[in-house]
């Protein structure tokens, strides 16, 4: 399996990369880790005329907390995120980053690459949706910030413009009483998710649910926020009954297709089940961080 021919540039500055993108609008692709793009190119399912490799652009991989945010540079690899000390306090992100692909993929694959690629069964989008993250897109005319819930438009399609580069993901800084978790079902370790559910729960005063975020992957044209599930949780006291109601709501919003990963009713049921499992863990972690 050999990719079709293409040109390759490796600019040293972000501005140069953006300039190239706007000059070659539509036929250039950004290369980050390459673990999503190159297999598609080898199968000749993707045939970009130009690859713009971000490797030499420095400063796009920081993981920092500000007063409000946790900011992760687009070039941060899954493994660096997983092993980062700050991320140890973000259990949802810790779960996701430790379970993507296999160790080699995690060594090279990046959060920005995954998010921009927007595979309908990839893991990061579910977490971004659950956490109401924001995605920083840089163009030649500056930055714009896109809400995760406005970002994933369709299969392999996002709100990013062809002339823009995804530079950073911003999560909200974790407050006390908040916990998150990601549970996915895979046919074998390293597989894309049959279904995956990310959950964030913030417990309010008196132990009821102050905020609930649910992101679901693998069971629709693109990952989605299970808003019906979030509504079913808001204000409730955590219990298995409440979780199950949320699971049913998330399953109801799923639009899976029947394929070799299983039939529609199975996938819907898995969304419900995984939602319950993620919620149990998220609440447990929220309680442990009060």
């Amino acid at each position: 399996m050999i990719p079709a021919p293409f040109d390759y540039v490796r600019p040293g500055e972000l501005e140069d990369a953006l300039k190239i993108l706007s000059e070659r609008e539509g036929d250039a692709k950004i290369l980050s880790g390459g673990y999503s793009l190159l297999p598609l190119m080898k199968l000749r399912l993707a045939q970009p005329a130009l690859l713009v490799d971000l490797r030499d652009i420095t400063g796009l991989d920081a993981i920092v907390e500000t007063d409000d945010d946790l900011r992760i540079g687009a070039k941060a690899t899954h493994r660096r995120i997983h092993e980062n000390e700050t991320i140890a306090r973000y259990p949802l992100l810790h779960d996701v980053s430790g379970g993507i692909g296999d160790p080699q993929v995690r060594n090279w694959g990046t959060i920005g690459g995954s998010v921009a690629h927007a595979d309908p069964a990839s893991d990061w989008p579910a977490a971004l949706l659950a956490a109401n993250a924001r995605i920083v897109c840089r163009g030649q005319n500056g930055e714009r910030i896109v809400e995760a819930r406005d970002f994933f438009l369709d299969t392999f399609t996002t709100a990013i413009e062809p002339t823009e580069i995804l530079t950073e993901i911003r999560f909200w800084r974790r407050p006390r009483g908040q916990g998150g978790a990601y549970t996915k079902l895979e046919r074998r370790v390293g597989d894309f998710a049959t279904a995956g559910v990310a959950a964030i729960i913030r417990l309010g005063d008196g132990g009821s649910i102050g905020f609930a975020g649910i992101g679901v992957t693998g069971v629709s044209d693109s990952p989605f926020a299970a808003t019906d599930a979030e509504a079913a949780l808001a204000g409730q006291r955590p219990s298995d009954d409440v979780f199950r109601a949320a699971g049913e709501a998330a399953a109801g919003m799923s639009r899976p297709v029947s394929d070799i990963r299983g039939p529609v009713d199975y996938k819907r049921a898995m969304v419900a089940e995984l939602t319950v499992r993620s919620l149990r863990k998220a609440v447990e972690r929220a309680l442990a961080y009060s």
Partner: peptide
Amino acid sequence: DTSNCGACTIHVNGQSAKSCTMLAV
């Protein structure tokens, strides 16, 4: 062809990598 098998694993700058899913450049 799909970076599943790992037979092509090498180290690049100390990190294990699947060399079939990396360009020489």
